[in-house]
């Protein structure tokens, strides 16, 4: 069974993670874990999720992990506590509770399980007629449960702004005075001389001289961008949508930054523009909802957006997917630029 073999690979990877001391390997193993999970989901018929996990879990998470390791200048953890009795007891009890819980579960793949007979059938039977979108995941995500997706876009926005708050002004903090409980003045370091984005990694290593990589990269970037637009537009028909498109779009810029240096990439996408687009995507999404209210429907009811309800649904879904794509791409780029824009030399 392919399921079992993939699950076994995941078990091996996860166990490896417990023992590994090299943090670089930890990040890589985590990426492998995500990629294997994505493969499993393709087998299980969840292609949209697989697409997302491959680009996020194996892609963005790995890049962020590597960047953090460079910034914290750590390769190895000090010592590994492979055996930790209290933790082991907690985990065993939790696991036992879960296994106890599985005993009354419907079997794997059982078509008569409650989740296949309640709520879901309507989506499968009526969603095409009601929304005009063949990809059921897209119609549920963007319309039936569109409010969750607005929340999800807000979460990504929060993360983008959050990383700006934490790292946006470059490195600071000579060791703060721990005695000062609060109250401003003492303990706060002056802002680092070059704030946002001015700090640049001296050079992107030997890569700068690797002409082949650069030419290859230049050739790759346009198709990646094109693919991003395709994924954005194609989300109604096949796997894809604003989220995946946003990640792919951002990855083109990340590649560009890796090959030509962060300043070059930042010149194409300046911080102030990214901050604007980061906010814009959320406003588009939430604004479409308000438009629904103004046109006499409920919040996020797209049917009222056009004369024909189905056209309205299609229009609404395209618009909100656009909002998702814009915010996700801006958030990913912001996060990457902020991480990559830190100066690893500046600490102690």
């Amino acid at each position: 069974m392919i399921n079992i073999s993939l699950l076994m690979i995941m078990v091996a990877t996860a166990l490896g993670l417990v023992w590994l001391r090299n943090l670089l390997a930890v990040v890589m193993f985590s990426g492998i874990f995500s990629l294997t999970a994505a493969s499993l989901w393709v087998v299980l018929g969840a292609v949209d999720v697989a697409f997302t996990e491959a680009s996020v879990g194996a892609g963005i998470a790995t890049v962020l992990g590597l960047a953090s390791l460079a910034l914290t200048r750590t390769e190895h953890e000090k010592r590994t506590r492979v055996f930790h009795l209290p933790a082991l007891i907690v985990v065993l009890v939790t696991g036992a509770a879960l296994i106890y819980g599985t005993l009354d579960m419907p079997g794997w793949g059982d078509p008569d399980a409650p989740i296949h007979t309640h709520v879901a059938p309507r989506y499968i039977e009526d969603s095409l007629a009601e929304t005009g979108v063949p990809n059921i995941v897209t119609s549920v995500l963007a319309s039936y449960r569109g409010f969750d997706t607005l929340g999800e876009t807000t979460v990504i926005f929060t993360a983008g702004v959050g990383v700006l708050v934490l790292l946006g002004r470059g490195r600071r903090y000579p060791v703060a005075n721990p005695r000062v409980a609060a109250g401003g003045g003492p303990g706060r370091a002056p802002a680092a001389p070059g704030s946002e984005g001015a700090a640049v990694p001296g050079d992107s290593g030997e890569m700068r001289f690797k002409a082949i990589l650069r030419v290859g990269g230049k050739l790759l970037i346009p198709p990646i961008l094109l693919f991003a637009f395709y994924t954005q537009a194609h989300g109604e028909l096949g796997p894809g949508g604003g989220f995946q498109a946003g990640v792919i779009f951002a990855s083109a810029f990340i590649l560009y930054a890796l090959l030509f240096g962060v300043p070059m990439a930042r010149a194409v996408a300046p911080a102030s523009v990214l901050r604007g687009t980061l906010a814009l995507g959320v406003l588009i999404y939430a604004g479409v909802g308000i438009a629904g209210v103004l046109l006499g429907g409920n919040y996020l009811d797209y049917s009222v957006l056009a004369h024909d309800p189905v056209h309205g649904q299609e229009l609404g879904i395209i618009l909100i997917e656009l909002g998702v794509g814009i915010t996700v791409a801006s958030a990913m780029m912001t996060v990457f630029f902020v991480f990559a824009g830190q100066d690893p030399q500046q600490v102690d």
């Binding site: 959050g162 721990p178 303990g187």
Partner: peptide, 28 residues
């Protein structure tokens, strides 16, 4: 009125709380 939507909003509030707390003046 939706159990999963509750999770989404819980995470919006939690993620922003982590950032807000980190803004304190003490390194702790």
């Amino acid at each position: 009125g939706d159990a999963f939507n509750l999770f989404v909003f819980l995470e919006i509030s939690s993620l922003s709380s982590y950032v807000l707390i980190s803004l304190g003046t003490d390194r702790r």
